[in-house]
Computed example of a mutant assay.
Amino acid sequence: MVYLAIFIGGAFGGGLRYLTSVMIHNTTFPLSTIIINVLGALLMGVMTSYFISYFKTHPNIKKMITTGFIGAFTTYSSLSLETVVLLKNGHIIIAILYLILSMIFGFIFIAIGYKKGTIHS
């Protein structure tokens, strides 16, 4: 049953990721991926703190949302590929900035989401 839950969450997360990336147009800087990953970090923080007691009694729903939906919505592989492409095209400063901002904003937004979820749970 857990596999089906993850599959369903992943289908929705991947679909939403694609729609979001189509709506946000990139220039040299891969803005869509950083926005998606930061939003995913915020959602992960909120989900893992706000619904903590609910998830204890419904572990399949937790896996559907966290591993399935948020896992498919966010993307480490796109971040890695876009960084390699930036480096290959000689955009070294943008590549470094992209990696640093992705890590810092990801950490900040998961902390914000976790804090917000804890306050409202």
Results as ranks from 00 to 15, higher is better:
M44R: 05
S32Q: 09
H58N: 04
M47G: 04
T74L: 10
M44G: 12
L19D: 00
F55D: 07
F55Y: 10
G40P: 13
S49H: 13
I34P: 03
F55E: 04
K63L: 11
L39M: 15
P59S: 06
H58G: 01
S53N: 10
P30N: 11
L19T: 07
P30M: 10
A41P: 08
F29D: 08
K62T: 01
G40D: 14
L79E: 07
G68N: 13
G40W: 14
I61R: 02
I70D: 06
T57G: 08
F55W: 06
T48K: 08
F69N: 02
P30W: 03
L42C: 05
V22G: 03
T27A: 12
M64A: 15
N26E: 10
S78C: 05
G40A: 14
N37Q: 11
I34R: 04
N60Y: 00
R17A: 07
T74M: 11
H58Y: 01
N60A: 07
S78P: 03
M44V: 15
T67M: 10
T67Y: 11
T27E: 14
R17S: 03
M47K: 04
F51L: 15
T67C: 06
L43H: 12
R17I: 03
S21V: 01
T20P: 00
I65T: 05
T66S: 04
S53I: 03
H58S: 01
L19N: 02
R17P: 05
R17E: 03
F69L: 15
A72L: 07
A72N: 14
I52N: 14
T66E: 10
Y76N: 10
G68L: 13
K62Y: 13
M64I: 07
I52W: 11
I24R: 13
S49Q: 14
F29E: 05
S21M: 07
T57S: 15
I34G: 02
I61H: 02
P30E: 10
L31A: 09
T28D: 12
H25P: 03
L31T: 11
T75G: 08
Y18E: 02
P59Y: 03
S49R: 12
I24K: 13
T66G: 08
T75F: 02
